[in-house]
C-alpha cells in the first residue's frame, strides 16, 4: 500500500493513497470543523466548513472531499479561514429560525458545537425570519424545516444505507428545501420504512422524535458505525 507524506499545520503527516485531508488531519489530532460530512456517507462538500488552504492552489478546497497528495502543504486555521468559517456559521444561524432555547436538541446540537468552535458570541447579520413548514404527519418523527441546514445527510443515509430514497432537494438558492417526492406529507410517503436513520444523522433539530421536547433529544449514530464495521469486515458489501 503506497504511503503519502504531507504537512498539515506544520505537522509532518503520513496517509494512505485515497485518504482525504480530513481523515489524515483527524488521525493527527488536527481539528477541522465539519457539518455535512459524516463517516459512512458519500462526501458531498455542501457546507464548506472544512475548507482549507493548500499551498500552490489558488482556491480553498474542502478537506472532506479532497484526496491527499505527496508533498501537499495544508493550512487549516489561518485568519482568512477562521473569518470565513465564523461567517458561514453566522449565516446558517441567520437563515433558519434557530431559537436554541426551544429546540429539541439544545445542548446536543452540531450547529451549536460549531458556534463554540468558531467563537460565535453573536450573529452580525440580519436574521431573515423566513416562514418554514413543519411536517408532523409521520407517526414517529417530525420535520421542522426552520432548523434545516441543508447538509443532505438525511437524503444520503436514506438513499445509501436504508435504500429508500425518501428525501431529496428541491428549489434553488435560499429557497432550497429537503423534500419528499412531490412534496407530499412524510406520513403519506409509501417508501419510508420508519427506520429513523435520517432522524439520527440530522446534525440539528430539523428531524426529531415526535415525543421529544426542548433539550431532550440526543441523536444516536451507532448504527452507522456498525454498518461501517460490517463493510470493512466484508460482511456487508455495497
Amino acid at each position: 500500500m503506497s504511503v503519502v507524506t504531507l504537512k498539515i499545520d506544520d505537522i509532518e503527516c503520513t496517509g494512505k493513497v485515497g485518504q482525504t485531508i480530513l481523515e489524515v488531519a483527524k488521525e493527527n489530532n488536527v481539528q477541522i470543523p465539519v457539518l455535512c460530512d459524516l463517516k459512512g456517507l458519500t462526501p458531498v462538500a455542501a457546507c464548506r466548513l472544512c475548507l482549507v488552504e493548500v499551498e500552490g492552489l489558488p482556491k480553498l478546497v474542502p478537506a472532506c472531499a479532497t484526496k491527499i497528495q505527496e508533498g501537499m502543504v495544508v493550512k487549516t486555521n489561518t485568519e482568512k479561514l477562521k473569518n470565513y468559517k465564523r461567517m458561514i456559521v453566522e449565516l446558517l444561524f441567520s437563515e433558519g429560525n434557530h431559537i436554541c432555547a426551544s429546540c429539541v436538541v439544545n445542548g446536543h446540537c452540531e450547529l451549536q458545537d460549531l458556534g463554540y468552535m468558531v467563537g460565535m458570541d453573536h450573529v452580525r447579520f440580519d436574521y431573515l425570519w423566513q416562514s418554514f413548514k413543519i411536517d408532523s404527519s409521520h407517526p414517529k418523527f417530525v420535520m421542522d424545516q426552520s432548523k434545516c441546514v441543508k447538509c443532505t445527510r438525511c437524503i444520503r443515509v436514506c438513499d445509501e444505507v436504508e435504500g429508500a430514497h425518501v428525501w431529496d432537494l428541491r428549489g434553488r438558492g435560499i429557497n432550497v428545501r429537503v423534500s419528499t417526492g412531490f412534496d407530499e406529507p412524510w406520513g403519506q410517503n409509501k417508501d419510508c420504512t420508519q427506520c429513523g436513520k435520517c432522524v439520527q444523522v440530522c446534525p440539528v433539530g430539523a428531524l426529531f422524535d415526535k415525543n421529544a421536547t426542548s433539550s431532550e433529544m440526543i441523536k444516536d449514530r451507532s448504527f452507522l458505525q456498525r454498518i461501517l464495521e460490517g463493510r470493512e469486515a466484508k460482511i456487508w458489501v455495497r
Binding site: N97, A101, H122
Partner: peptide, 18 residues
C-alpha cells in the same frame, strides 16, 4: 453587555417576526 439570548439574538420574543 447584551445579557442573555433575547438581547443577543431576539430569541423567543422574536418568534412573532414570523
Amino acid at each position: 453587555i447584551a445579557f442573555g439570548d433575547c438581547a443577543i439574538t431576539g430569541n423567543v420574543p422574536a418568534y412573532r417576526n414570523l
